[in-house]
Amino acid sequence: MKVIKRIQGRTVVLPTRDIDTDQIIAARFLTTTSSEGLGKNAFYDLRYNKDGSEKTDFILNQPAAEGCSILIGGNNFGCGSSREHAPWALLDYGFEAVISTEIADIFRSNSLKNGLLAIVIDTASHERLMATPGEEIVIDVESTTITLPDGQTIEFEMDGFSRHCLLEGIDQLGFLQQSSAAIRSFEENRRWKP
């Protein structure tokens, strides 16, 4: 995995609560056997009409969203299906981070494993970010802070291991494999066999 220490980018706000992974990428796009090129299908049914034309009122289709790489989502972002296609699609679309007051467990874990920063912040700070879309902010993984244009900072929590993996570009499969002796001994010594 690539090293991620710091992300700088402009925000786009999707205020709806409970954005599920079916909305992020619909099931009909899951018949792929690759994890690449899914960005064109991200939020497809929110972005396009049935005839394929763009829904001009959807935030991501507006000029202000152009080039924005940080998505501020409503509460409980990424709920529902475990599909890793959701963070793959968001990354391929151009997002580097998702910020909300709550992020569903599986989506959060999938995101961090792929280098999409899934960040949970307090309600007041979230309201502050929602109110000023388009501003340029800096997410620092090392200090687990977000810095706003006026210099104000927001702290966030991130599991120490996820943070370490991002900062060092650690591949978690490789990390698990380093414990192969422990895994073998667990298999040999357990009280019962599955």
Binding site: E84, I106, K113, L173, L176, Q177, I183
Partner: peptide, 22 residues
């Protein structure tokens, strides 16, 4: 519990997962 595709790879290769206790 449900897992993502990266974790499917972890289990296929090592029969283990990295997990924080819920």
């Amino acid at each position: 519990f449900g897992i993502g595709t990266t974790e499917v790879g972890h289990v296929l290769a090592t029969q283990c997962l990295l997990q924080r206790k819920p």
